Computed example of a mutant assay.
Amino acid sequence: MRIKLSYITIILLWATTPLAIKWSGEGPGFLFGVTARMAIGTVCVLIVLALMRQRMAWHRKAWLTYIAIALQIYGSMLPVYWAAQFIPSGWISVIFGLTPLMTASLAAIFLGERSLTLGKLLAYGLGISGLVIMFGSALQLGDEAVLGIGAVLLSVFLQSASSVWIKRIAAKLPALSQVTGGLLLALPAYLLTWAIVDGHWPLLLTPTSLAAIIYLGVIATTLGFVLYFYLLTHLPATRVALITLVSPLLALMLGHSINDEPLTMKVIIGTLLILSALIMHIFFDRLTAVKPRPK
């Protein structure tokens, strides 16, 4: 029951996070938005850790796990925030729908999981086709939108690599400890990046961007990250990545209805191809598997 509830919560969080990311950077800038989010999130997880009287582990596997999570929190999130300046928020969720395909490829290489079957290869073809159409839509928005899609793809790769690395380390740490350790390593990197590249307190901090930053820091980071790594600890990496099956549609509808983001036929076709790839990724091999005859 806990795992199912965590799944539903993560789907809802991942559907609303892209729009909140876009709003958080409108005015203060994307670097301030993501740095403020991680600072708030770090304070929140430390408070929760203290209230639960949970101690951090500092052995070798724990350190490696924290580094792997920091790679995801910093290396994966930073490109997304940059890309949100140039592409509709719903596109971020759609492109992240490729995470299971990327994760399956890396899991086959590094974890020895059986994830490169005929169904998976066909799914990759559909996913790439959908991505090509999304690139075509981005060309209509300008070169920066194309670079934005490329940045989100980099983020997908880093998140998938981090997930597989965490599974390979297999430190079996509590989810809250994993998130806390990752944030403690990632936050200094964010602060240093903001200080070097920007370093100025924003002149414009609208109520919308402030609310988005607080939502992302308190809810999406504290609750979302803990639930995500809780699932990652108890389920295979590829199954956790399948959360992206539902969230893209919700994110597109939210972006279109709330933020007036364009929803063209190309975007719809590209999204459907990527979602079809995910469906094939899940069900093709099960449907084509030959069941042994009863003796």
Rank of each mutant, 00 (worst) to 15 (best):
L184Y: 10
G119W: 06
V218N: 00
G75L: 08
F30C: 08
E261I: 13
G217K: 02
M253F: 15
L147I: 13
A289V: 07
P174T: 07
R53V: 12
P236T: 09
L273T: 06
G75C: 12
G217N: 03
Y7M: 06
R55D: 15
T206W: 11
D260L: 15
L173K: 03
L185E: 01
Y7G: 02
S155C: 12
L273G: 01
T222W: 05
V226N: 02
L78Y: 10
L71F: 12
I219A: 01
S160R: 03
A186W: 06
T17I: 09
M77S: 10
G142I: 05
W91R: 00
A62W: 07
W165A: 03
S89V: 05
L98Y: 14
H234P: 05
L46A: 13
I10L: 15
K266E: 14
H256D: 04
S89T: 03
I8D: 00
T238E: 14
G29I: 04
L49K: 09
A151N: 01
K4Y: 13
G90I: 09
L191Q: 03
G90V: 05
T238A: 12
S276W: 12
A212M: 13
L19H: 10
L184A: 09
I149V: 14
Q159C: 06
L223M: 05
V146R: 02
D260R: 15
L263K: 03
L192I: 08
Y215W: 15
P292C: 06
I196E: 03
G136F: 04
L176E: 04
K291E: 10
G181V: 00
L131T: 00
T208E: 14
L13G: 02
E113A: 12
G136I: 07
Y81Q: 08
M56C: 15
L184D: 05
S24C: 07
A251N: 11
L231T: 03
P292W: 13
A83G: 09
G150A: 03
T233F: 07
